[in-house]
Design a protein around this nucleic acid. Sequence first.
DNA 1: ATGAATGTGAGTATCCTGTTTATATTCTCG
DNA 2: CGAGAATATAAACAGGATACTCACATTCAT
Lengths: 207, 207
Amino acid sequence: MSTRIAKPAARMRKLPRQARSIATVEAIIEAGAHVLSELGWAGFSTNKVAEAAGVSIGSLYQYFPDKLALVEAIRRRHFDHVLSVIREASAEEKPLKQFARELVRGMIGAHSIHPTLHQVLLDEVPGDRGSRAAHASFQARYLEHYAAAVAQYRKRRKDTETMARVLSSAVEGVIHNAARRNMLDAPELQKQLGELIQAYISGGKAA
Amino acid sequence: MSTRIAKPAARMRKLPRQARSIATVEAIIEAGAHVLSELGWAGFSTNKVAEAAGVSIGSLYQYFPDKLALVEAIRRRHFDHVLSVIREASAEEKPLKQFARELVRGMIGAHSIHPTLHQVLLDEVPGDRGSRAAHASFQARYLEHYAAAVAQYRKRRKDTETMARVLSSAVEGVIHNAARRNMLDAPELQKQLGELIQAYISGGKAA
DNA sequence: ATGAATGTGAGTATCCTGTTTATATTCTCG
DNA sequence: CGAGAATATAAACAGGATACTCACATTCAT
């Protein structure tokens, strides 16, 4: 719930020491997320990000050695956020209905600021050497939470992992699609997504 | 099931008359779909497409007045294909289980050749003036089929349209995600996707 | 007030892009 | 066959955008 200050280093040219520069770095990352979400990877240029951040291009390169380091910082922040949402939703034991509702609410919240950032990060941004590992580890932990939830509400232990993958990608698909149409906050959509989750997890008894 | 020869014109500079040129145009469109799927919109350049098609850049411009005309041709072909898949799956009255199975099979088939083309077309390719209408009309007909299916297996008439949207985007999400991991032909995934569809459509009685 | 931290933005060097055009090859058909 | 149409080629162009540097200006902490 609290805004993360982001772990100190993610391949930065130098660390911001004063409050001024911390704000600058923050503005750059924020503007970067915005540009990436709005224009996609194709429109993500360092100059554009600097301008959107209200900062000179020189300042950007004072802290980020190159374009990819910046995008890695953006990715890290976003993934941390999403991860915390799922962690909270799947924490403790609670009725399926409540889990579904919290998951939907959290996921929608996480996408409301930069609606398509998540997909752009997954699909368009090139997977460079260094970030591949971090990326995979994120995906793994991401799935773990879904799998834990699936296992909790299900007797059959068989297809847990596949189900987790199907469920997570289905949820992402719905949210991504809603984001594209600016329908992220339509209540009937939230309700239906919740029911999709419940229906799938609670299994295929009714034909 | 049969390979479409594509409607004659889609804003072409001139029509191919001889067999040779028809093959050329076909190769260009095919290569274009490949490049678009593989490199995304950011990596989609006319020179690259021409090279991938084994054709000189000049030939490309002999038939397509510009880059966008080419991408429109690609889009048209792909959407026609997808549309025919859904049309066939939702035609006639058949048990829900069979509908789900056919839909999954068809959708996976439609994405097996150019796994991420669909998403790239939807997300990355800019919506230019002329194609906006065609795009919308495709989406409308696309949803109609889903809605028809939902209505057929459901009593409640209330949320039919929202359900169709949720269902279609969930299916797309799963397929897109599977495509990214090269898991499109994993049978357990197909099975689970089928069950997701059934569970959602057949409603949330079982908690 | 002095040195360190921070900020500036014009400038550079490249790389690519979409597109044209002059020319070469292949086809059609009388 | 052979003439004209259809088709194919690829070098070249003009223009723009890009990531990134650097010499200098400003603001901070002490």
